[in-house]
Design a protein around this nucleic acid. Structure first.
Length: 976
RNA sequence: GCCGCGGUGGUGAAAUUGGUAUACACGCUAGUCUUAGGAACUAGUGGGGAAACCCGUGGAGGUUCGAGUCCUCUCCGCGGCACCA
């Protein structure tokens, strides 16, 4: 029999497919469209690694399944070829990036073609080609027209190694994402895209897409919307001649009565104006010190907070109190107003700072917990003294276990006009009998608790004040019977108190007690010491206080975002030049559309970055010198190029229109083919590429150039394939696996199946080729079933063993039975259903498992499968093993391709099991299994179960109290 | 610290979403065939026990007739964010 030779088969079909263009999509076809997109590869000089193959294969299986289901599937491919990594590679190799990119692409293409993916190569494009970046520049002009591209002097992230500006998203823990160099801040005039204008819609429209929930959350957090108020405080400083105000942003206006100082970021413009003479020296010293710190040092959490007093004061508009104004670098100039109101009692950072500089701490919000109350009953408001008695000898706490209710609590009671400490002491004596306890301290915060008291049949709102005592000795007096009936005193170990008393809601109190100092309370609660707002809950207070500020003209509601505008200028050679011309007379002028593309000069000898703040293009005279498009006078070109993420923010819109030199997007084709139906790629792109692409889409939507405002309807991520050592693959660790060798040895089909079989698509994990043999066996099994004539029947259905020649000729498919036996028909139907459903869910691993299971059935089965049914198997196998499926399809006598067939139909009736196995549980444990007719009723099954020997053993003199029947699954008996 | 994901046999992993835990595969053990096999096939394979049974999804509680799945707490691993007021 002909052996399965993957090399021969795969190269044969690769060639045939390429010639016939079977995967080239007719975009004008009437079939329903399906835009199946993968994130296009970045040919940086490394081989495409196993992660690319993984992602593309998953997407390909999905796309092939769609195709078999009648969709006109478009799976284009191209190269993201501009940008830093490609350029750095070229510099290292000592060649022009254009050359190295071309050879990198050539190599990547070989790899991509070996994977057997149904890419449409006829729509290929490369972002570094003038025919592409013409549209990158065009996009820039459109955004410029709408005021969404602008220039400003701004502190930017500067990588001294790459000698360029980086977007915030490209700075990872203070280091350059490409070369791990420490990023520094530099003030430069920079081009930005105004993505912040879209912040709200970028959050809101996440509702419209089918994306992994975790990615939606990641984007939402990245944009970081927070609602608050912004308001002004008058500044008092001997230095000021005119009145000044400081504006602050807060999300916790409800804590404003607790403000004890104000902090300005060191860069804040007011710093200079308000600092008093006396403090001038100290402030200057601090500013110099702050400036020296790098971004990482400044942001490191371990670093103790530092700051300096300006000598000036701000006036809290709510109570006209004067509070000192400090400067501290824990306040960021880039967020909000660069100034904050500090409330040390209710904010961790302010608390830490206040503690260090001995600034006052003032409570304005108290914890409030509402427990179950009984509506209709009288509600009493009471001051409650709570006694926390600690035994210093064994570190246990005195608690009460209530008898009528489930309460477990500290001794406590109403104050009845006494002072808190006296009341607490008295309660301990009355309730527990302990005579000698020593007062240690009183907890600062009042804690509100609302609950129902069964022993008094009323509700109470308790204003609880906690006091700490230490037990001096064991001396006790007799406890009154009345008290004894209600509760019993117990000593609880410190580590058990939290659970015993169920005081989760008192966490702040308990933590403070343990820390030996009172920690800030940062949750919402009930306002205290807050003038007319006292008594309100945080929620209402926020509203009322915002209204109050607005009415008085001090401030307003404000929404702030963590997201910054997208800095897109790069002082590098290998990118699309920004199409702007600077004229002495007319200023910055956009290049006319008809003059696009502004070509990147090719014969540049020195394209290395200079580190001067200007890119290498600045020294190419022929490039720089030009004419003003407005007045025609002498002018100079912008020499920055665009961030690569601009290239990739619209490529998916360009694909269907590739080849059109007049328009970026042909209206008809675009309307038909976009948005993208399925997008597959890595989760590492969520806060960069995916966010930028959504922004650009919305901007173009607003310009009425497209009729959709979300580019990717469905998104799926592949997991990360790690090196065999379980670590992230990297060249330096020497653990990079490239798929080429695996494919050479085992074939693309085996590789595709194995990589998808390893685990859940979105999980990934360490690469371990051990299991590949199993997949190989599976493929060879199918191959044999298809080819081995010994397994086949004569046309009359007589088994081969009954007389047919044992050895058929090579390539003889033998003859097939007219129909498969019922068992096989049923199992095939189930397999078709399961595989289809699993692919749709991206559960490729279980789809493959069910194919394997079915192939095992065929192998064990003495009566083989009919030709028609075997063909169905080949069709559902074809997305996973496109080469072998095609070869077998041909061997079965077909002239057309297996990849253009229809997904096989199956009879739902076949799927229903005739008999089912029902488990019989007794008190939750499986005791027997019954094989019964699937149609059986509960009564019948119960009788059968009772008749079972195994069940009877348990039923002896026991009474069946309850019967639960889950149809076709299990019968659960509860017996006494 | 915050947000998200995960922890199941010797290994990679399944589990219809509250219904017989370990499908499928690797590995291992035994056997068949073979001159031989890193081949193929057959049988077995969570742990304990001779068996009846008992125990088992990181750990501790809870809800339920029934929990890998839900709730509370906790430990560990991974990813993201990180002084965002």
């Amino acid at each position: 029999m002909e052996k399965y030779n993957h090399k021969q088969i795969e190269s044969k079909w690769r060639e045939i497919w390429e010639k016939s263009g079977i995967y080239n999509t007719d975009l004008a076809s009437k079939d329903p469209k399906f835009y199946n997109l993968i994130m296009f590869p970045y040919p940086s000089g490394e081989y495409l690694h196993i992660g690319h193959a993984y992602s593309d294969t998953g997407a390909d299986v999905y796309g092939r399944h769609k195709k078999l289901n009648g969709y006109n599937v478009f799976m284009p491919i191209g190269y993201d070829a501009f940008g830093l990594p490609a350029e750095n590679y070229a510099i290292k190799a000592g060649v022009n990036p254009k050359e190295s990119t071309a050879s990198n692409i050539e190599h990547a293409e070989k790899q991509l073609k070996s994977w057997g993916c149904s890419f449409d190569w006829s729509h290929k494009m490369t972002t570094s080609a003038p025919s592409y970046y013409k549209w990158t520049q065009w996009l820039f002009l459109k955004l410029y027209e709408k005021g969404l591209a602008y220039q400003k002097e701004a502190p930017v992230n500067w990588c001294p190694e790459c000698k360029t500006v980086l977007a915030n998203e490209q700075v990872i823990e203070g280091l350059c994402e490409r070369c791990d160099t420490e990023v520094v801040q530099k003030n430069l005039k920079q081009w930005f895209f105004k993505i912040t204008d879209y912040a709200d819609r970028l959050i809101k429209d996440l509702d419209k897409v089918d994306w992994p929930e975790s990615s939606i959350i990641k984007q939402r957090n990245w944009i970081g919307r927070s609602e608050g108020v912004q308001f002004n405080l008058k500044v008092k400083s001997e230095k000021l001649k005119v009145e000044e105000e400081v504006e602050v942003f807060t999300t916790r206006i409800d804590t404003v009565f607790g403000m004890t100082y104000v902090v300005l970021a060191p860069e804040h413009p007011l710093v200079e104006k308000i600092t008093v003479t006396e403090q001038k020296k100290a402030v200057e010293k601090y500013l110099i010190q702050a400036q020296k710190l790098t971004e990482i040092e400044r942001q490191s959490l371990e670093k103790e907070k530092t700051g300096v007093f300006t000598g000036a004061y701000a006036i809290n508009p709510f109570n006209n109190e004067e509070v000192p104004i400090w400067i501290a670098d824990y306040v960021l100039y880039g967020y909000g107003t660069g100034a904050v109101m500090a409330v040390s009692a209710h904010d961790e950072r302010d608390y830490e700072f206040a503690k260090k500089y001995k600034l006052p701490i003032k409570e304005s919000v108290a914890p409030y917990t509402k427990f179950e109350t009984k509506p209709g009953k009288e509600t009493e408001v009471r001051d409650l003294a709570i006694a926390v008695v600690r035994n210093p000898k064994d570190n246990k706490y005195l608690c009460l276990k209530w008898k009528q209710t489930k309460w477990q609590a500290f001794p406590s009671g109403g104050t009845d006009g006494e002072d808190i400490v006296t009341a607490a002491k008295r309660e301990v004596l009355e309730e527990t009998g302990y005579k000698n306890i020593k007062f240690i301290k009183k907890f600062r915060n009042t804690i509100f608790e609302e609950f129902y008291r069964p022993h008094k049949d009323s509700n109470v709102i308790a204003h609880s004040i906690y006091s700490l005592f230490e037990l001096e000795n064991d001396e006790r007096q007799e406890v009154a019977q009345k008290e004894k009936d209600q509760h019993e005193a117990v000593w609880v170990k410190e580590e058990e108190v939290e659970n015993f008393l169920n005081i989760k809601h008192l966490k702040i109190f308990w933590r403070s007690l343990q820390a030996g100092e009172e920690m800030p309370f940062t949750d919402p609660g009930k306002l205290v010491n807050s003038g007319e707002f006292s008594g309100l809950f945080s929620d209402e207070a926020k509203k009322k206080m915002a209204e109050w500020l607005k009415k008085k003209g001090f401030g307003r509601r404000k929404i702030n975002y963590r997201l910054h505008d997208w800095s897109i200028g790069r002082q590098r050679y290998w990118g699309a030049p920004i199409p702007i011309i600077y004229c002495d007379k007319c200023g910055a002028q956009p290049v006319a559309e008809k003059d696009l593309p502004v070509k990147l000069p090719e014969n540049v000898k020195d394209f290395k970055p200079k580190g001067t703040g200007k890119g290498p293009l600045a020294s190419v005279k022929e490039f720089v010198d030009t004419r003003c498009p407005y007045c025609g006078g002498k002018a100079e070109r912008e020499t920055d190029t665009m961030d690569t993420f601009v290239d990739s923010s619209f490529y998916f819109m360009r694909y269907p229109s590739v080849g059109d030199d007049k328009e970026m997007m042909k209206p008809n084709v675009t309307k038909e083919w976009l948005p993208v139906d399925m997008y597959v790629g890595g989760a590492e792109h969520v806060t960069m590429h995916l966010l930028y692409a959504r922004f650009i889409t919305k901007a173009l939507f607003d310009m009425k150039m497209i009729n959709f405002d979300e580019p990717f309807l469905k998104l799926r991520h592949q997991g990360m394939i790690l090196g065999p050592d379980g670590k992230k693959m990297s060249k330096s660790k020497g653990n990079v696996i490239i798929p080429d060798e695996v494919i050479r040895e085992h074939g693309a089909d085996a590789f595709r199946i194995y990589i998808l079989f390893m685990g859940r698509f979105e999980d990934g994990g360490p690469w371990n080729p051990k299991g590949l043999v199993g997949v190989k066996r599976f493929l060879e099994k199918i191959w044999k079933i298809g080819l081995d004539s010994r397994r086949s029947l004569s046309a009359e259905g007589i088994p081969a063993s009954a007389g047919m020649t044992k050895e058929g000729g090579d390539d003889n498919m033998g003859s097939w039975p007219k129909i498969s036996n019922m068992e096989i028909q049923a199992k095939l139907a189930r397999t078709i259903k399961k595989v289809g459903a699993d692919i749709e869910d991206f559960k490729f691993n279980t789809a493959i498992a069910s194919l394997m299971k079915f192939s095992n059935v065929l192998q064990e089965e003495k009566n083989p499968i009919s030709k028609g049914d075997f063909e169905k198997l080949i069709v559902i196998l074809s997305p996973f093993a496109p080469f072998m499926a095609e070869e077998l399809w041909e061997k079965l006598g077909h002239k057309d391709s297996v990849h253009v067939q229809g997904w096989p139909e199956y009879d739902e009736k076949l799927i229903k099991e005739e008999t089912v196995t029902v488990a019989v549980q007794i008190n939750g444990k499986v005791r027997d299994q019954l094989v019964i007719n699937a149609e059986s009723e509960e009564d019948e099954i119960l009788e059968l179960a009772k008749a079972s020997e195994k069940v009877q053993k348990y039923l002896d003199d026991a009474e069946i109290k309850k019967v639960i029947y889950v149809p076709g699954k299990l019968l659960s008996l509860v017996i006494s």
